[in-house]
Design a protein around this nucleic acid. Sequence first.
DNA 1: GCCTATGATTTGTCTAGTTGTATAGGATTC
DNA 2: GAATCCTATACAACTAGACAAATCATAGGC
Lengths: 259, 259
Amino acid sequence: MRKPGGHEVSMTGAIMARTPVWASIAATLEQEIARGLYAAGDKLPTEAALAARFGVNRHTVRRALSDLGERGLTHSRRGAGVFVRAAPTDYPLGRRVRFHSNIRASGRLPEKRVLRIETRPADTTEAEALDLAPAAPVIVYEGLSLAGGDPIAHFTSVFPAERLPGIDATLQETSSVTEALRRHGIADYTRAFTRLTAEAATATQALHLALPEGAPLLRSVGRNVDPDGVPVEHGVTHFAGDRVALTVASDDDPPTSSG
Amino acid sequence: MRKPGGHEVSMTGAIMARTPVWASIAATLEQEIARGLYAAGDKLPTEAALAARFGVNRHTVRRALSDLGERGLTHSRRGAGVFVRAAPTDYPLGRRVRFHSNIRASGRLPEKRVLRIETRPADTTEAEALDLAPAAPVIVYEGLSLAGGDPIAHFTSVFPAERLPGIDATLQETSSVTEALRRHGIADYTRAFTRLTAEAATATQALHLALPEGAPLLRSVGRNVDPDGVPVEHGVTHFAGDRVALTVASDDDPPTSSG
DNA sequence: GCCTATGATTTGTCTAGTTGTATAGGATTC
DNA sequence: GAATCCTATACAACTAGACAAATCATAGGC
């Protein structure tokens, strides 16, 4: 599984007669991952341990691990270790996931991890977004969407606390915005708008999504309203740009002449 | 002597913390204090809660809180918690987005500048996208979309040349995909799909869009088909992430059992 | 009602281990 | 000579776990 004359060799055209040690180590580790010796999410031995095992310097091991990381097989967390990634190459998310349901649920993907659920006064933008009085209480729901153990998106949703008392407990239980709204009597909500932008990942976002800082993120801002047009949820989701492709379903779509 | 910190950012599995994580956390908390989420005298969430929220170790949160404490924003009492001392008044929240467009109008933004119009044999992906025989001739239309003189997006569209002979001249004249297709007898086309991703700008894209290399771009791939479902246009558009927000209209969208 | 004992919670401190980065130098190959 | 590969050292950033010290919540006794 080694590619000495790969496509992305930009240095020189020289062909290495002998395979470097680091490539050999990378190939060994890749085989062991492929063989199931290390499952997805598992932590590899420490760099020091691997260096001892292969009888090389730690930096040589790091060169091998860097290769695996570039190819998406592993990712590392400083201080924690190197971990096997679930999706080796392209995650076929774009094929299956519908844009509308995806956006509306703000990450209603297989698994979710709750990072924070709290009630606090709204800031000015939140109050405006939910059409509330200044500093009115809002319930904040922050979390991660995962697919196969890999983080796909990071989202933050705010709800009007007075309109939806106790939805924090429901969110904690179901971790689903759709389900929580349904249980609180708002089964028939619609999405007022969705706004999409691209952003560079901050250090914190990079950490959550296991990406390098500055990596491109797909930012989605959306608002859900009840049948009377009153906002019941306002959320921001950041998708990992290289792991997700949102697809817009092509309902009936008369090409309007909107600027 | 070597220069530290080159321009090359290896956007790969490794998490490059150009900014320390604790600094990013401190900035987030400072902003939340400034926005009035935590008033003077309020107790911040516990270190453990913040660690869970940011996905880091408690010590990293402590490093951030230590920074806030040193700067006089907070003070802590052992056993009790961390409390807000005062709220800084500066609240910088610039409006990033200066332009937004409906996503249906992906390739039809107001002002345009033609970069290239040419006819050549299709490559494999283009042939597949347009459902053509390999190396069948296609017309390629590359250009920039502008708003107020600023470049907003860079797009490349391909058309089947045999189906639409002479459309290159029409494109040159009108610089509008919609108008060109209409004049060539395809007034009633529909968008088969749209796929959205975030990407980092290459050097060329950065040049076109007047952005730094690596800046986040919103990549939109779409295909238009005639009433019989035959592809008549396939395009890729890269939007400048910080200058554009795509909006998804909320047409008829029953939130029931879709996904 | 008031006081206290108890236990859980929360911050403070310590030690140890792991990855990320920078610098420097020797060895090999072209 | 230049580029690549590997070694070596040192430090920074972050994780992990454990324990102490202060505080808070609660129940029980008077």
